[in-house]
Amino acid sequence: MKVEKKTTLTKNPFLPDPARIVRVYPLTQDVKFFQVRLVDINKALAFQYHPGQFAMISILGAGEAPFSISSTPSRPGLLEFCIRKTGTITGAIFNLKENDLIGVRGPYGNGFPIEKMLGKDILIVMGGLGAAPLRSVLLYCLDNRDQFGRVILLHGAKCPAEMIFCQEFQDLKKREDLECYLTVDTDDTGQWEDNIGVVTTLFPKLKAINPEQTVSLVCGPPVMYKFVIQELLKLQIPKDQILMTLERRMKCGVGKCGHCAIDYIYTCLDGPVFTYWDVIHMRELI
């Protein structure tokens, strides 16, 4: 007979940590960039995460929602988020200014499997707000450049004004150790110097890919996945080396509220990063 063991509960996973907004500026018309720091400096430095993980951000009086961490663990202390205004909570976040307080819990989710990516060529394909989680892994690879093979970035946006981190990525083009391709669906400015067309029009520009040696990371709006994955399969990248992050409704981030369920797994625990193989053999993923 099992004797009831007294669980000593040291941590309440539902309690956020207070964090202060250090910097905030607009990235596009409806996306803002937030740099935050946990108020407790020890916790700020101890906050360890993997690229691809997310945090729950709470705003007093509005509620809590999940957001990908856009910064890289290789630059500890500050957390960065790109947030699109879509409703109540994001609307409330948009009203906040530097020095305002928010709540942060996390990090949650599986994140990208960095160990499996070491030594490999990394092909990152991002569209729109997909840059939020993928910027983290991109910066991580660049900060640990010697641990990866080629690093290739394909980034697409609707138009130049919609391109998140436009300047940051423009500057990255100058780096010799990064193959960076940018594109916009349409150029309404007449000033755009890079490719024009959807993100898949960038694929013909790539130098020859060694598929077995390549891990591809994809994040973007739902329509993008279908077309990008076709291109990746054409390149013969193995299905389990195509990684994607998926979105689900999330209320807890810690596998209790049930909202993020897909079949019998929980996206907040076993995701949000899945391989394309997961996606085709699990029923509800896409």
Binding site: L60, A62, T88, I89, A92, N95
Partner: peptide, 10 residues
């Protein structure tokens, strides 16, 4: 109260 605090509920 939510309206007064600037965040009408979803």
């Amino acid at each position: 109260t939510r309206v007064v605090k600037g965040a009408p509920p979803e």
